[in-house]
Design a protein around this nucleic acid. Structure first.
Lengths: 351, 351
DNA sequence: GTTAGCACTCTATGTATTTGAGTGCTAAGG
DNA sequence: CCTTAGCACTCAAATACATAGAGTGCTAAC
């Protein structure tokens, strides 16, 4: 009865499932098309190659496997992998050594948030031997902790913004006129006094409102503060991600096509497509997998992307994951991505 | 007479030089071994292929050209390229459009020093279609402009260091005990008052001296200041470089060996070897070229590196350059590297 | 439903053969 | 003595062909 229920899920007999599973596992391990004889040996079903060939013909019909040519074995298709990861996969528990390594390097070694992100990406790539990506956390509410204005030559002002806990941003803004160090300091003091702890966007609105209201009857300090702050708090879309270990991709046979590779690396550089893809996982529950063309981006054909959102507090703030050939060890990669997402969240929260 | 003098320089007849030059130029353009017939047509010497073959035999004897196999044309060796760039090369003046592009994007578009460096690297790579590298400027004298200490949870302090003009560094230090915001502010004030404008290393020494001298009879503020500053001003070796456009290397036929490529990219990641190589150019006069194995690093076999130091004021502070296949358009690349070095220096000075 | 048997297909590998580009050498000519 | 035509020679690349082996699909028997 259990048998018939699993059978109904995707119209595959228990036996066919076992065989598909064995085939995918074997192919992932060896990278060679799997023939009926091998499969007969590998699966413990005690069936003759001939029988298995019949099953394979069915699986091929269903688009779950394909053979590169008549006299080669079978290879999983994207749909085959999909079925595999969805209902056949037995996830491998992580080695304790791996877990503690992740914990150590994420929690203890890394200091600033930027370093933590960087580590997460490197770790993902090092542990999986794939390319690791970590989207920068999109912090909806960036609160001002402290601001500093320093005059530079040529009507420029160096703005140092300390936000949230330990994030430091600095930018240079061009102002309409020259401000003295004293003026700027007073202005910064004013802003820190008035706005510390408040949301950056809110501050900018408050500043705009104040400017509109006050016009010419405001004091020198406030005028400076508002003029500078208006430009200093300009929203900055920092949709971005940190990539590590694209080199690993060179190690895989299936990435040998140099022109494909170039286009893939180009996409890593351009970032746009990859970001779009990661964005899609922002509101997914847990680990999500894009297999081959599923991602919808041509450069990622024959690649799979395994992602997971990560949260700070109970708020999802970003996505991380790995990118590699479709033929990757999903049973190992999935838990690694999963755990790293949790640990990254924890590390960022504790800052 | 002029003829005989050039001849003596490297024991090559004027004619042999012309032929070598033509051969190298042709090979750089086409990427195919050059045969005697082609060479006869290309060089305007009005010689028969047979004569040219004789000359080629001589050049081969001298190790300046080689043939991949008996019945292929000749290809320049590393020594051949060397002679070519040293005495045969006619450098191509840059197109005004290129120059103004470099100027615009380096001088105007980029704001902070970090952005300028980044641009320089991208530009080098974009304009030459090779990989661009820019060593971070090693500023011997890092003067303190302003320091800020902010308390974080768990005995940690966020240090924001504004140095020289507009460089902002931030780091997190762990302290022996918890300091209050007020304590830290007072300490920062003390340091800013006492040490602003002085050399970072000098400050640390002064602090160490003060700590040794003062022991327990110093005021609370000074104690805090010294304790924190001691850790905050720790020297930080930031030997590093910014790499751009390694993707371009995938476009070249001669980089098709995927295993070599992997090792090269690995070297880019490790940075150590590349840094060593760049270091060697620090005290060179102008543009320097490493051809093939000349660099001494195995990964760079069949690569050439064209570098130039760049200066801020009259002080050499770093090196930039490009990395690409030995077969690169030296006549174009050399002036680009040269000009970019000057422009980068200028852009950094004007900050 | 399962399986043995068999013809068939297709790749990979190895071996000749041919073609063409380019060389080195030699001998003749200025 | 330098230059060049001529020619034999070499070698890579292309082409064709044969062979071996892996694996299939199909059929017929169990």
């Amino acid at each position: 009865m259990a048998g018939s229920s699993t059978e109904l899920e995707h119209g595959l007999s228990e036996r066919a499932q076992t065989l598909l599973k064995t085939l995918v596992e074997r192919y992932i391990r060896e990278g060679q098309p799997v023939g009926s004889r091998t499969l007969a040996r590998d699966s413990k079903l005690d069936l003759s190659p001939a029988t298995i060939r019949n099953v394979m013909a069915d699986l091929e019909e269903l688009g779950l496997v394909a053979s590169p040519h008549t006299s080669a074995g079978r290879v999983p298709t994207a749909r085959g992998y999909r079925l595999f990861v969805d209902s056949l996969l037995t996830v491998k528990p992580l080695r304790p050594a791996t877990v503690s390594r992740l914990k150590r390097e994420l929690g203890e070694r890394a200091e600033t948030p930027a370093e933590v992100i960087e580590s997460a990406s490197s770790l993902l790539s090092a542990v999986t031997r794939l390319a690791g990506v970590v989207m920068l956390p999109r912090v909806e509410q960036v609160t001002l902790r402290q601001v500093e204005f320093l005059p530079l030559s040529g009507n420029r002002v160096l703005v140092i913004l300390v936000t949230n806990n330990a994030e430091v941003q600095n930018r240079i803004i061009h102002t309409g006129r020259t401000y003295s160090a004293a003026e700027l300091e007073a202005a910064a003091n004013y802003i820190n006094r008035e706005f510390a702890g408040r949301d950056l966007r809110g501050i900018r609105e408050a500043v705009a409102a104040a400017m509109a209201r006050a016009r010419d009857d405001m004091g020198r300090i406030m005028e400076t503060a508002l003029a500078v702050a208006d430009r200093a708090f300009e929203g900055r879309r920092d949709d971005d991600f940190v990539l590590a270990g694209q080199n690993h991709l060179l190690e895989y046979q299936e990435m040998a096509d140099i022109e494909r590779l170039r286009r893939l690396f180009e996409a890593f550089n351009t970032k746009r497509d990859i970001l779009h893809l990661l964005d899609q996982s922002l509101d997914a529950e847990g680990v999500q997998i894009f297999i081959g063309q599923e991602s919808g981006y041509e450069v990622l054909d024959s690649c799979s992307v395994v992602t997971s959102p990560y949260r700070v507090g109970d708020q999802v703030v970003g996505v991380l994951g790995v990118i590699g050939p479709t033929r990757m060890a999903y049973d190992r990669v999935i838990p690694i991505v999963d755990v790293t997402a949790r640990l990254l969240g924890a590390a960022l929260s504790s800052e």
